[in-house]
Amino acid sequence: MFNHLDLRNHIRTLSSLAWDSLNNSEFLKPGLIDERGLRFGRPRLWRTADGFHDYEPETLTIFQPFKDESPLIRKAIWNRSADMKRVFEISEDQHSHTAFNPVPTITIQDASIEKDGFEAILVQANEIRLPLMWPWSNHRDNLTEDVGKVGMEVFDIAQPQASLRLEWSAEPPPEWKPALEWFDQMSNWLESQLKP
């Protein structure tokens, strides 16, 4: 049986390992590495699913193709509900001798994506203009707890990489509306590429 501090530490460890796997899904089996090296991911979209949601934390990552290959999407999903249930069951069982196993349950799904459609969506994103900062007078007085976060990160394929990251929750800045609409379009299109 865990004490309260043990339980918090186990949950924190499990969550940290899960997000490391989701954010670096190219290393999950089957690995996206071969004799030519590693495919570069661009962009990556995610949903954290904190709080009360009907979905699990996930990432959608596009991997830059090698010269003669189609782009690849990898969807990685953390089965957070089952993993948390497992941790709580171990913590509540006074007679259990089961050791805590901090290995998260991750499932992946890979698919080739249609290159021209992907490029068309990227061109649309190139037209979006967002403010880097906005006036303090536009400050929002929201305070929401236990909500999921949604976000995206775009990587350049140069080394060292340039990247741009946006993350939001229940009340995103209104100035980001064009980016959020593009995110929904990209997310829906990517999901359609994963369907058989």
Rank of each mutant, 00 (worst) to 15 (best):
Trp46Asn: 01
Trp46Met: 03
Arg47His: 14
Arg47Val: 06
Thr48Leu: 02
Ala49Ser: 11
Phe52Met: 08
Asp54Phe: 04
Glu56Thr: 07
Pro57Tyr: 03
Pro57Lys: 09
Glu58Gly: 04
Thr59Ile: 01
Leu60Glu: 00
Leu60Phe: 06
Leu60Lys: 07
Thr61Pro: 00
Ile62Asp: 01
Phe63Trp: 03
Phe63Met: 01
Gln64Thr: 08
Gln64Cys: 09
Phe66Thr: 02
Lys67Phe: 00
Lys67Ser: 02
Leu72Ile: 10
Ile73Met: 01
Ile73Asn: 00
Arg74Ile: 06
Arg74Ser: 01
Ala76Ile: 05
Ile77Leu: 09
Ile77Ala: 05
Trp78Ser: 06
Ala82Met: 06
Met84His: 07
Met84Asn: 05
Lys85Glu: 14
Val87Lys: 02
Val87Thr: 07
Phe88Cys: 09
Ser91Val: 02
Ser91Gly: 08
Glu92Thr: 04
Asp93Glu: 07
Asp93Gln: 08
Gln94Tyr: 08
Gln94Cys: 09
Gln94Ser: 13
His95Leu: 02
Ser96Thr: 15
Phe100Pro: 02
Phe100Trp: 07
Asn101Ala: 13
Asn101Phe: 14
Val103Asn: 11
Thr107Asn: 09
Ile108Thr: 04
Ile108Cys: 05
Asp110Ala: 02
Ser112Ala: 10
Ser112Tyr: 01
Glu114Gly: 06
Glu114Asn: 06
Lys115Tyr: 08
Asp116Gln: 09
Gly117Pro: 02
Glu119Trp: 01
Ala120Gln: 08
Val123Cys: 09
Gln124Gly: 11
Ala125Glu: 08
Ala125Leu: 12
Glu127Pro: 15
Arg129Cys: 12
Arg129Trp: 15
Pro131Lys: 12
Pro131Ile: 10
Pro131Val: 11
Pro131Ala: 10
Met133Glu: 10
Trp134Lys: 03
Pro135Val: 10
Trp136Leu: 09
Trp136Val: 07
Ser137Arg: 14
Ser137Asp: 12
Ser137Cys: 15
Ser137Lys: 15
Ser137Gln: 14
Asn138Trp: 08
Asn138Pro: 04
Asp141Phe: 15
Asn142His: 11
Leu143Ala: 11
Glu145Trp: 10
Val147Asn: 06
Gly148Ser: 12
Lys149Gln: 13
Lys149Leu: 12
Lys149Ala: 11
Lys149Val: 10
Glu153Pro: 01
Phe155His: 12
Asp156Pro: 03
Asp156Leu: 05
Ala158Asp: 14
Ala158Gly: 15
Gln159Arg: 13
Gln159Tyr: 12
Gln159Glu: 11
Pro160Tyr: 14
Pro160Val: 14
